[in-house]
Amino acid sequence: MTARASGSAPGAALAGLVAAPVVVGLGYSAAAAIGLAGPAARGLSLVHIDRVMRDATVWRGLAWTIYAAALATALATAAAVAVAIGFRGTGIGDRLARIAALVPFPIPYVVAAAGAVLVLGQSGLLARLAAAAGVIHDPSGFPPLVLDRPGLGFILTFAWKEVPFLTFVAVSVLATRGQQLEETARTLGASPAATLRRVTVPLLWRGLAPAVVLVFIFIAGTYEGAALLGPTDPLPFAVATYERYQALDLTLRGDGFVLTLLGLILGLAAVAVFEWTRARAERLRS
């Protein structure tokens, strides 16, 4: 008891310290959003908040961000689950697949996005291949995958980028207790398909959920990815935040603080969801 009591207070305090910069940012942007701080401070006023609330482009950008991040996350999750279930043996093919799936892990977002521009753009490699194969005749015949409204390039790129992390987690979820539970299911009468559906996938889902939430948070929050691959209309939320913040017009800069505040609040909410899924997954282990 004493050990626990004495260990608990510093732990909480240290965690608070880690979060402090975000809290400072939250406080500052909140103050700036209501006109009490920042370059455009002119006394308490809700004018910036009001302008942002009425600005449809902001909300459309936010909606696009959520849509693209959700779709990319879903694709990456499906791929990671497939790799983790399909390649968990000790054979050469299994190992090769696991290594190959891990390689993009350390590739920075900015490289992934830059590479996507060079490959998926209308004069990129895919377009050349298509032309060489005679499918299209000139670059404009190639579907726009970059800076496009549906965000196909963005979605594919970041789905690819996040497969390694999710695969890594999925493989370790299955390695911990997966085989034993699957054997139990089989000997209790479940067919391979039923075992997959009733044991492997639910187990994987619970263990993987916190990682999936993190991946969504990362993709939704990327600035450089959205700047290089996202559309200009609707403008992705991260890009909109930076553009308003950088604006010469002081009114727009005030709006930038409202977007900053909104981004940080959304981050806070996402972290709460993450911690909820993490606690659920943690309970699976005992």
């Binding site: 207790r177 539970l181 054997e183 139990t184 187990l203 699976l284 282990r285």
Partner: peptide, 9 residues
């Protein structure tokens, strides 16, 4: 199994 393997989910 020696240690009961209940489905945790």
């Amino acid at each position: 199994h020696q240690v009961p393997t209940l489905f945790p989910h």
